[in-house]
């Protein structure tokens, strides 16, 4: 049943790489933004909140287009990054990772934020009386207690990144071997006569990966809960 061509395998591995990189790179930012939104009050907080959630409500094609006119090679930010740091996003797999990371970001932030808001802040007070300054307090109390939310957020982001289609194809197109993910490959196959069988194989792979991610995250979340509450 799994009759994958080398090009299909490339798409599968590329999808995994893009989703993993997008999730890992987004995670520190996700934790920082979630902490800010959960704990701090500052001017323009609702604006930050709205901007973070924007990719969730905008049509993905719109997000992709906005990325194109911001991070494209001739666009201001894109040209700056390419000239000064040699970082190029347009029509590269890194651009796909950027698009996926941004599309997944709101889901990640939501999960982590809820988890931070659920922490009993009295525990942080207790840690402070025991000599923990803000940095150590965050590292030894807040962060470990947020772990279930971080796992949930990372898993949601990974799943979202794996399924991303609209923003990615708009921003970095559909280049086999460089930006063609599973979703894009399935789409391409359904557009050619007789491609259905190959498309089905890729669909099976996508289902397997998603299920595996779901099971793994459940397992990690349960382990984290046991660690937190004593098993």
């Amino acid at each position: 049943m799994l009759d994958l061509s080398p090009q299909d395998w490339t798409a599968v591995l590329l999808s995994l790489r893009i989703a993993v990189v997008a999730t890992i790179v987004a995670l520190p930012f996700g934790i920082a933004v979630a902490y800010l939104l959960a704990r701090k009050s500052f001017w323009g907080k609702s604006l930050v909140d709205a901007v973070v959630h924007l990719p969730l409500v905008l049509p993905p094609v719109v997000t992709g287009y906005l990325l194109l006119i911001t991070f494209g090679r001739k666009a201001p930010v894109g040209a700056f990054l390419a000239d000064h740091f040699g970082i190029v996003f347009s029509f590269r797999w890194t651009g796909a990772a950027l698009a996926c990371g941004i599309m997944a970001f709101p889901l990640m932030v939501r999960a982590i934020r809820l988890s931070i808001e659920a922490i009993d802040r009295k525990l942080e007070d207790a840690a402070a009386t025991l000599g923990a300054n803000r940095f150590w307090n965050f590292l030894t109390i807040t962060l470990p207690l947020t772990l279930p939310g971080i796992i949930a957020g990372a898993m949601l982001a990974f799943a979202r990144a794996l399924g991303e289609f609209g923003a990615t194809i708009t921003f970095v197109s559909n280049i086999p071997g460089e930006t063609q993910t599973i979703s894009a490959a399935i789409y391409t196959l359904t557009q050619v006569p007789g491609g259905d069988a190959a498309a089905l194989s890729l669909v099976v792979v996508a289902v397997i990966i998603s299920l595996a991610a779901l099971v793994a995250s459940e397992w990690f979340a349960r382990r984290a809960a046991i660690r937190l509450h004593g098993g």
């Binding site: 525990l123 007070d125 000599g131 109390i141 937190l228």
Partner: peptide
């Protein structure tokens, strides 16, 4: 003076042990 620089031990009503 910040609490972590006071070196004052506190036992709270609910214990507040770190669950993790």
């Amino acid at each position: 003076v910040r609490p972590w620089k006071r070196h004052i031990g506190t036992v709270f009503q609910e214990g507040r042990l770190f669950p993790h």
